[in-house]
Design a protein around this nucleic acid. Sequence first.
DNA 1: TCTTGTCGAATTGTTCAACGATTCCTATGT
DNA 2: ACATAGGAATCGTTGAACAATTCGACAAGA
Lengths: 221, 221
Amino acid sequence: MVADLSQDRSRLGRSSTAELVADILRDRISEGFFRPGQRLSEESISEGLGVSRNTLREAFRLLGHERLLDHKLNRGVFVRLPSAEDVSDLYHVRRVLEGAAVRLAPPPEALAVIKEAVLDAERAAAEDDWQRVGTANIRFHQALVSLNGSPRIDEAMRQLLAELRLVFHVMENPRAFHEPFVDRNRTLLGLIESGPPERAAAYLDDYLDDAERLLIDAYAP
Amino acid sequence: MVADLSQDRSRLGRSSTAELVADILRDRISEGFFRPGQRLSEESISEGLGVSRNTLREAFRLLGHERLLDHKLNRGVFVRLPSAEDVSDLYHVRRVLEGAAVRLAPPPEALAVIKEAVLDAERAAAEDDWQRVGTANIRFHQALVSLNGSPRIDEAMRQLLAELRLVFHVMENPRAFHEPFVDRNRTLLGLIESGPPERAAAYLDDYLDDAERLLIDAYAP
DNA sequence: TCTTGTCGAATTGTTCAACGATTCCTATGT
DNA sequence: ACATAGGAATCGTTGAACAATTCGACAAGA
């Protein structure tokens, strides 16, 4: 009778001002409104958002732990500016997490989400909407990693992709970067559906190697 | 002349009161002084440590993001009490991270750290010091994962093991749990040094499957 | 007896003002 | 040009205050 409301329960506790502020700032950083390297003044932002400095500082801590902000003692918080080593490390983690995902037997309903992301990327590419291509590409890899079925890995991937977005924001033309991977996403999907896991894994490794190389070459922080 | 102090530099920036407080609380939780499920009162702890409530709250946020504390709105912070699903997920992540590590070509100097951990566990087991066996075992797996050479993965593993320690703190006799794995650590080390990576990976999978099963059976949160 | 409503104490959430400490910028002097 | 000494701006931390929320106890009603 008392249907399991234990799921909805998690939603209940999710609304302190500090977390709301963190959500807002995360979105702003993600969309590029705050640029990497930029300093975020406690005074101006707390005033702008209408929250106290203490509450804002709690939000800063949250985002600092997600590696989106860089907290320098007595100097303030800055939007993180990833180094080339950071990019390399991010791709190493991607190889581990995505590689583990494609080696698993994929549940059909999870495949549907991936397929939808591939389709959306293709549609957006046909319309020259490269902003949306990038978003769909991110959704593709997020869904890919979710094949692991692990909440912690999903969360780690979310943070990783948010950090990677910082890299894109300092590049001159991120669109050109995403273009070649629309087709490869579809190929990879096919290998996951039908091919042996090892082939998908090998293809993915090449995929990520190429992406990392392209990115690092074009990246001058 | 100015030897590379770039490593020590990371420690320099690490000294706000909030982070120090977080370090203290992390140690206390890790050693079991604060038990899982226990509520941490803002007033008593801030008074006990001689810091203001605001500073303490910043420390709480940090540990909350490490999944060591559970922040419930308007109810306070509690030492996290992992569920059986959490344990399962933690071991899934371990399989991914440690599995990726043993498939890589191991640099000799990293192997030395692993070997030292194995030896220490064996010595401690011979002396019936099961507390130290547990610590050495954790060091073993931390060193194992560090074969990835990824700072982010190292950090994730650190958090994962800290969370796993919470599980041990609610078990009746964690010592009995660690005992069978002293020998298996040595065997695994041998396979990493000499055997083909796939054999080490297979052995590791069995290892972690057994550990997870034993742990979940004995775990009643 | 069980449920429901209400009150009050205790704790958290948030804000505000203040002061010392640190960093950065600038002007001053050599 | 260079070093140095202020001074402004900002951060780090504190303490107090008040609103909001939770929780337990106790009384009223079915």
